[in-house]
């Protein structure tokens, strides 16, 4: 395997809570290569957003993070503050779900782009201004020079997300961590933003980790996908393969519960039950209570994350049976 740009190994995140520690992320491992778009998919509470923030240590002090997040050979989780700040923005950028919340309401878009440039580049004010206009053009916002003086509340939803992307890309990062970037947007806008992100990834050679709960988004944009459940990655592999022949019961159930355009009309089957509580240790497979393929050992032994097909990995005792369906 080529040296991955980002390699996350056994990432665990716990939050101190009155009842005990909540294990939001319980041993997550995946890798991202240069220029590739990886989807991190799962329902709410699966730990995908937390994973993303944990990588660049954006979580609150109440979180305990362990494991490794190797970026170009250095463990981000162990880096001193100063070095980490040099990575943030410059090499790894993040965008969030709700663009109105992600933008500082009292600063202009221009100021928010330029402060990123000021933190990382050696550009003077003129050059920063020019680059900002360029960035706005890049994300498809016309009349950039005027727009620089606008405030976030003066933009529409879609434009705000474009602006957020422009800000994130200001210092030309190699990896973009996108936490549900289209969830809060209008359906038509969602499509535009996704297309924009894909284009930018290709044009700039920028890798991307796209966190979403929408399999459709993953199908459209990602090369590879990691499926998360209860804080763990339960299946990973190329999008086409995983979606065509899932090897984890959860993936299969997910696919069945979502409409798939183009395929023959099938009744939608929702997944019965609730995701498990994360403040208690789960001995076996976390999906066991809801699994249609459950076996006896699923309850007691956590299935290992093993290769079940060329380039496809799953943590399921019944991987064979699932794949056969």
């Amino acid at each position: 395997m080529t040296a991955a740009l980002l390699r996350v190994e056994d990432l665990r995140v716990g939050f101190a809570a009155p009842g005990g520690t909540v294990r939001a992320v319980d041993g997550v491992s995946f890798a991202v290569d240069a220029g590739e778009i990886v989807g991190l998919v799962g329902e709410s509470g699966s730990g995908k957003s937390v994973t993303l923030r944990a990588i660049t240590r954006l979580l609150r002090r109440t979180a305990t993070v362990s494991g490794r997040a190797e970026w170009r050979g250095r463990d981000l989780l162990a880096l001193p503050e100063r070095a980490l700040r040099a990575v943030r923005g410059r090499e790894i950028a993040t965008i969030f779900q709700e663009p109105m919340a992600a933008l500082n309401p009292v600063l202009t878009i221009g100021e928010q782009i330029e402060e990123s440039l000021a933190a990382h580049g050696g550009l003077d004010r003129r050059a920063r201004r020019a680059r900002a206009v360029e960035l706005l053009g890049l994300v498809g916002i016309a009349s950039g020079a005027q727009r620089l003086r606008s405030y976030p509340h003066e933009f529409s939803g879609g434009m705000r997300q474009r602006a957020t992307i422009a800000i994130a890309l200001a210092a030309q990062p190699m990896l973009l961590l996108a936490d549900e970037p289209t969830t809060a947007l209008d359906v038509t806008i969602q499509d535009q933003i996704l297309k924009l992100l894909t284009r930018l990834s290709a044009e700039l050679g920028m890798a991307m980790v796209l966190v979403t709960h929408d399999l459709g988004v993953v199908a459209e944009t990602c090369a590879r996908v990691c499926v998360m459940y209860a804080g763990r990655v339960v299946e990973a592999g190329p999008v086409g393969t995983v979606f065509a022949r899932p090897r984890h019961a959860y993936t299969a159930a997910l696919l069945r519960s979502m409409p798939q355009g183009g395929a023959a009309r099938q009744p939608l089957v929702p997944i019965p039950g609730q995701p498990p509580r994360l403040d208690q240790a789960i001995p076996g497979c976390p999906f066991a209570p809801r699994c249609g393929f459950v076996e006896a050992r699923c309850w007691t032994d956590a299935p290992p994350f093993s290769q079940v097909a060329p380039a496809q990995w799953a943590a399921c005792w019944a991987a064979e049976r699932v794949g056969a369906c």
Binding site: R53, T56, V87, A93, F96, N104, P105, S116, A119
Partner: peptide, 13 residues
């Protein structure tokens, strides 16, 4: 607020 996280993610001091 999320914009504080966003600002931190930009690598600001």
């Amino acid at each position: 607020a999320e914009f504080v996280d966003f600002a931190r993610s930009k690598g600001l001091s």
